[in-house]
Design a protein around this nucleic acid. Sequence first.
DNA 1: AATGTGAGTTGGGAAATCAAACTCAGGAGG
DNA 2: CCTCCTGAGTTTGATTTCCCAACTCACATT
Lengths: 135, 135
Amino acid sequence: MANALEVVGERWSLLALREVFFGCTRFDQIAANTGASRDVLTVRLKKLVAAGVLEKHQYSEHPPRYEYVLTESGRALHNLMLMLKEWGDEYVTQGPLPLVWQHSCGATLEPRVVCAACGEEATPESLTRAEQVTH
Amino acid sequence: MANALEVVGERWSLLALREVFFGCTRFDQIAANTGASRDVLTVRLKKLVAAGVLEKHQYSEHPPRYEYVLTESGRALHNLMLMLKEWGDEYVTQGPLPLVWQHSCGATLEPRVVCAACGEEATPESLTRAEQVTH
DNA sequence: AATGTGAGTTGGGAAATCAAACTCAGGAGG
DNA sequence: CCTCCTGAGTTTGATTTCCCAACTCACATT
């Protein structure tokens, strides 16, 4: 957790990534939609690129224009963002939700975290420490 | 997401909550295990209590001693923390993982986010915007 | 009486944040 | 050709936060 937070735990990082997920990949859009100040956003995006979460692509040479795209590592943050939104929706946000996801099965998405092996929910009580495993 | 980050998005908040999940519920323990400075930790814990994520219980009157316990809202952060750890393990942490969870089914936990309705994975491609729903 | 512990407070300097203005490269319009 | 506009940052100067070490205060222990 601490390692993950080193990379995406600073203010604006996750909101910037949310914008990229939404297809807002350009600097000015991200700045406008997140509310981050431009200087801080510059630093955050550089850090995310350095960490391999985003890549900076030049999509036009004349004039020089850039966009930020997700790497695999960045795309893998989708689950984290779903849970963050879910918790916020459930316990923080008052009134109507600004966004509701519909799953391809037709239902309104209610995300659940399960064990990949057995499909049962991963609750705090269902977990115990395992012996060290080399990564 | 932004609302959730307002509550748990500041530095040390999630690490403090991790400690409480681990059963380290006392101020000095949390400070030592997270590395947060004591003054900042004081502010964070107060904010988490105010937000209804933690409760401060006095478990001894003479001498006066306190512990922080999770509310339902706090316990609901478990999923978020699992995903944060999972992403860090997968894309940030080098070398052996400091902690591996075993699910009650016997397998090493590999958390997956699925749609509660159909049990299929909730990928970015499987989601579309739904119409507004009152909370 | 002296020392220890838990749970913070306090103080001062370093670092990060903010908003607004500025830069720079390159169109677009007249 | 001259002026205005846009995207993508930089710069600047004024706040806020953060960090760390030392201090407090109420009890307990030796």
